[in-house]
Amino acid sequence: MENLTIAASERSPEVNFDVAAGVLQIKGESYPEDASSVFGPIFTALQDYLAQADGNGLKVDFELIYFNSSSAKALMNMFQMLENAKGTDIVVNWQFMADDETMKEFGEDFSEDLSHVTFNLVAVS
């Protein structure tokens, strides 16, 4: 499969999925009216990767500053998808600015249901 590279727009994040390295980065802000336009291609790429991971792990790095409620729902779906991929070692790094309570709380909310996925809350200043 091919790498997925999407540049940031005014209301959508930058996405980089390096398939060979097994690293997906999602960075910036996400508040399009229709969250599926942003997350649809990411879901498809993740499904393809997980179906043929063959023992390779996956690292997902989030550096999100802000997202709207429909993006939050899409992120929750993404975490459910990762949690169900039992055959793959998955590490999520949820990076947030140390003074940003909102993004920290979202990280805590998302991590609650996860047991198979290793979820790291990473405060940066």
């Binding site: 802000y66 709207n68 003074d99």
Partner: peptide, 20 residues
């Protein structure tokens, strides 16, 4: 402060998108 800016912005976005 950052947290207040985030809260106001978030409410603004959700309310505007509800209108849209």
């Amino acid at each position: 402060d950052v947290t207040t800016i985030k809260k106001v912005f978030s409410v603004f976005v959700e309310q505007s998108q509800n209108i849209i």
